[in-house]
């Protein structure tokens, strides 16, 4: 095969694989959503997943948020001082955290932590035939395994984001007031003055979308795992990379849509 032909061949195969993967994920999202409304409802599985995706992620999310809020205050103070706008640091921290950094950083962290765990667990179940075993016991693996994780992701990401927003703002306040010597009253007033409910809600909608992406993509990648430990490893890496990419891409479009 000539080099050009082989290039086109490879390119074509890449496009087909990409479309097949997107199609497969779309179908899984669709099926997982259908099962939300169809009994039996698996509350035990759901609560277990809410705990592992949500509660388990609280420490990392909080640490990330507090330091992000702190550095945000520090950076914007340094910059804004150049045109005597230090007074707006509180506003910038509040808006950045609620609209953007809270949901996105939470999404990226949960993708790395819970997404990897989901893909590894389902991948292991797949290669050890536990997923097939579920089906032979007349239980739909999507209903049993995917839907609880999907719902847990959609519910818990906004909850984590509320924590993240709050603690980020507290971190910013601490640095601005305690380290940089800003006036506490003015800072707080500036934090709340320009902050609107829709900033907060928009961020939470984004977080819910990210939660669905993380759970859906990770379950899909887990189910695609083949061939033992190496396959599970590949599925896990794939789950984290693809969900983080999709979070960043969808972030722009959801923001543009909500604006």
């Amino acid at each position: 095969m000539s080099p050009i032909k082989s290039l086109i061949d490879r390119l074509g195969r890449g496009v087909i694989d990409f479309l097949a993967e997107m199609g497969g994920m779309g179908l899984l999202f669709f099926k997982a959503t259908l099962f939300i409304f169809r009994p039996p409802y698996r509350f035990r599985n759901l609560f277990k997943q809410m705990e592992s995706i949500g509660v388990g992620s609280i420490p990392v999310v909080l640490i990330t948020a507090v330091f992000t809020g702190m550095v945000l205050a520090l950076q914007s103070y340094t910059g804004f001082k150049r045109f005597n706008a230090e007074g707006l640091v509180g506003t910038v921290v509040a808006l950045s955290m609620t609209r953007e950094l809270g949901p996105v950083l939470t999404g990226l962290i949960v993708a790395g932590r819970a997404g990897a765990a989901i893909a590894a667990e389902l991948g292991t179940m797949k290669v050890t035939e536990q997923v097939d075993a579920l089906a032979t016991l007349a239980v739909d693996p999507v209903q049993y395994l995917v839907t609880p994780r999907f719902v847990a992701g959609i519910v818990m990401l906004p909850v984590l984001t509320i924590f993240s927003d709050l603690i980020g703002i507290v971190g910013g306040y601490a640095v601005a007031v305690k380290v940089l010597g800003a006036n506490a009253g003015v800072y707080l007033q500036r934090t709340t003055q320009y902050l609107e409910l829709e900033d907060l809600l928009g961020g939470l909608v984004k977080a819910a979308v990210f939660g669905g992406i993380i759970a859906g993509v990770s379950c899909y990648k887990g189910f695609q795992a083949e061939g033992g430990a190496e396959g599970v490893g590949r599925a896990t890496t794939g789950a984290v990379v693809v969900s983080e990419m999709l979070i960043l891409i969808s972030n722009y479009y959801v923001t543009a849509f909500l604006r």
Partner: peptide, 30 residues
Amino acid sequence: LFEFRKRFGMLFQGAALFDSLTVWENVAFG
């Protein structure tokens, strides 16, 4: 098809037990 599978039992090569459940929960799963 899922309903139809209730007439089947299958023993997998590696047993494919659910590793998050106890032995009796595995047996009683169906």
